[in-house]
Design a binder for these strands. Structure first.
Lengths: 207, 207
DNA sequence: CACCCGATGTCAGTAACTGTCATCACGTAA
DNA sequence: TTACGTGATGACAGTTACTGACATCGGGTG
């Protein structure tokens, strides 16, 4: 049992997301977040390094999960296949957080500073994945390029999942993005092989 | 002819890079930059939106050049080949700025806030390239994935160019990175086909 | 009961950034 | 030549993110 109200950190994160969503990130002061959480501004900065970080505390867990899965892939798996295992696991972890992820994503896409923070978190993820691949014997720059590709695939899959009108299976969307990525990298002219996917599949070739 | 000392904007950028390089980004105040440029803090913020942006005013030109080259590629070129033309042009544009690019890059890699800004500039570049590819008839998400891949290739090539002990041909390094990238995406197990490249090419396969 | 310790509150201070108005140096037209 | 317009700059007050130093609170431990 806490000596004060429990989970100050969680209350701050919840209050921040609410306020950012209600009135916008820039129109929200840290003092207001702290007040809604029943704390002071100074305490906010003891839990979070800055006003943005309160939206990104989960990034560490995401990265650890992704890395663990890649590291645990069979020794004979190619880099891109090891990364695919990590993508699957991450998609699973998001499964029951569709509504939360949507709200958070809307807040972030509405503000450039928050996008910057998200990008550096993804860059950190990419760097960790590259390091893991190197540990599996993959040379540079193959490791870094493969890691960046995996993050790009994740982003595409995530945004499709978030942007869908109803809740869908994120793992499936990510796998489709990976398949389309391989086609592009192989030098394909245009379009995906998933006309059943729905959106944006009218592959108009240039004549 | 300017009414005051000419090129206030350029003087601010030069002063900022000097000070960031000498004593670090965080240890430099905007007032100090302005003073070295013979101006006031308020004038700094009339030329640059914030303390970071002073290092990134060239990003617009880079993006325009890259996009122009991709848009001008032959109609029958595959996405990845169109992007390769843009990569070549950008590498050319950097040719005579090795020392400047090194200093600037060192400043940026030493500070997380500056890295965030750089990442969002690259994301903007990626978005512009994806839009250009869509204009060439490439469907989503192939366009976005190809664009992100091109930016990743550029980053690898640029960092190798900057990190080299002597000045080398950036265009060549970028082309090598592109070749290695294609191999990874195709599902290759390990290493590059350029053992002559030097650094990091001891491809240790997992046993 | 005395003490320790971690989480919080209080308060002063720095620096990034903004809004507002005054001022300056030049071009232009009477 | 002089008066006026205009765009760039200076001066100054104000908000807010963020930090350091110190006090306080409440529970556990000897």
């Amino acid at each position: 049992m806490g000596r004060w109200e429990p989970d100050a950190r969680g209350r701050l994160a919840a209050a921040a997301l609410q306020l950012y969503s209600e009135r916008g990130y820039e129109q929200t002061t840290v003092a207001e977040i702290a007040k809604r959480a029943g704390l002071t501004e100074r305490t906010f900065f003891r839990h979070y390094a800055d006003k943005r970080e309160v939206l990104f505390s989960g990034a560490v867990d995401l990265q650890e999960l992704f890395v663990r899965e890649v590291a645990g892939a069979p020794d004979n798996a190619a880099p891109i296949d090891a990364l695919a295992l990590g993508l699957d696991a991450v998609a699973e972890a998001f499964a029951d957080r569709w509504a939360y992820a949507r709200t958070r994503h809307a807040v972030i896409t509405a503000n450039a500073e928050l996008q910057e923070r998200e990008l550096i978190k993804l860059a950190s993820l990419s760097a960790a994945l590259a390091e893991t691949l190197r540990g599996r014997g993959v040379a540079e720059p193959a490791a870094s390029l493969a890691a960046e590709a995996a993050v790009a695939v994740f982003k595409v899959g995530f945004e499709r999942w978030i942007g869908a009108s109803e809740e869908r299976d994120m793992a499936q969307l990510v796998r489709e993005a990976l398949t389309e990525f391989k086609a592009v990298a192989a030098g394909g002219r245009c379009a995906p092989e998933h006309p059943r996917t729905g959106a944006g599949s009218q592959a108009s070739g240039t004549p």
